[in-house]
Design a binder for these strands. Sequence first.
DNA 1: CGCATTATTGATCGTCTTCAAGAGTCGTGG
DNA 2: CCACGACTCTTGAAGACGATCAATAATGCG
Lengths: 238, 238
Amino acid sequence: MIQPQPHRSVVEPAITRLVALGDLDASEIALIEANLRVARTVRPHNDILREGDAIPTRWLMLSGWAARTRVLEDGSRQILNFTLPGDLIGLCDQEHPVAASTIIAIGKVTLCPAPDARERPGLKRAYAMSRAIEEAHLFDQIARLGRMSAEERIEDLLREICERLDLAGLVAQDGFDLPLTQEMLADATGLTPVHVNRTVQHLRKLGVLQWSHGRASIVARRSRRSERRLTLARVSQR
Amino acid sequence: MIQPQPHRSVVEPAITRLVALGDLDASEIALIEANLRVARTVRPHNDILREGDAIPTRWLMLSGWAARTRVLEDGSRQILNFTLPGDLIGLCDQEHPVAASTIIAIGKVTLCPAPDARERPGLKRAYAMSRAIEEAHLFDQIARLGRMSAEERIEDLLREICERLDLAGLVAQDGFDLPLTQEMLADATGLTPVHVNRTVQHLRKLGVLQWSHGRASIVARRSRRSERRLTLARVSQR
DNA sequence: CGCATTATTGATCGTCTTCAAGAGTCGTGG
DNA sequence: CCACGACTCTTGAAGACGATCAATAATGCG
């Protein structure tokens, strides 16, 4: 018997995510697949986008991780959010969009141009959902930094990341790739690397978190201060 | 001699702001003025929008302040941002938008429907700029909570508010209305009311901040950790 | 005027930072 | 294959910033 096959032998995380968000039709998927061939790669630690730059193209993240960061005058750094496969970069409705923050590649990143969504209802839905989800995650990040303890911040952020990777089909039985250093996790959670280290160790001892060699998993349990309902459900009807 | 008059004898802050953002033409201003007549008012402490609700209408804030809040499971509260006169509520490109957070009126608030921007280039520009500015302020809020001290958070937030009110023409020589309690300021800065009290007193002693009876002013000076360039300049060309 | 809310003050405690040093890991080149 | 250097992780000790608890003073509203 021939098993039904997915639309591609190699599953593309970005396509998985956008299909989930916008219920793309075959022609829309084909548009993305066409763009895969003109993918661009960014080397580790290089800027994908610089604050103040004009944004001529909208990009679709294909692989790798990136971090939207802000550097304060004294050199301290805050990671505003992470950009993961299937995420869009540069969505906005200004005529001459300007990047409001710098996005840096963590490890090697590949991107392709995001297809034009005009006259493409599925893509339009997917982009709108993507933007709404990103905004919801900014809210989550604010609540994390403002009202959670170190332990809660780290656990909550990792759960959010896991949920997002899952949307792109990037979470397996044994967990997911987590290519962060503890220092980056500190920059994202507003903590010091030293305290992140101690807190991560504690979460490991609690059995909540496994994380070694860039691979992590986190057990299903609800944190005390956040319900962590699926974000996708939070920003759409039903 | 007859002096040139502003377009209305009573200057409407919301119109001032949108004109500044989008360079509206007379017909677009007229559209807003028409909507002023169907303004709705929300009483203090009532919800303008509830998380999870469908958003049938886009609103334009005319007067008063509102706070976008998230309440965590243990009852602690985080104010994500403030909504001020001239701000838009419900901008997004989803077909069936859902509120990602609750917005509560601080004091009495008046709103009117935001005119449809289709075929209205000025309004389109203004709405796009408004959204970009709001996003930039979310980034600012994250950096504040993640990387600034109590003193810096309060000073930086108040400067941001002052800058925003100024765009709507709501800052006078002697300062601006600041209808917040110290508790709300605590919920916005991720601090406790007690510590906000002490920090505000300190800022007063430093001569940085005047604030009494709901009226405040803050002296021009750059905070150590943030440059606080005008946000409007940050999200647009030149 | 009376009550509820808000602001203020003091004392103590805990979380997280800071500083500093050492161990582990990884990639690179001899 | 091993040695080296650069990160990254880990650990300890001390200190600071802000939280917490509790009580009192002001405000402001009805």
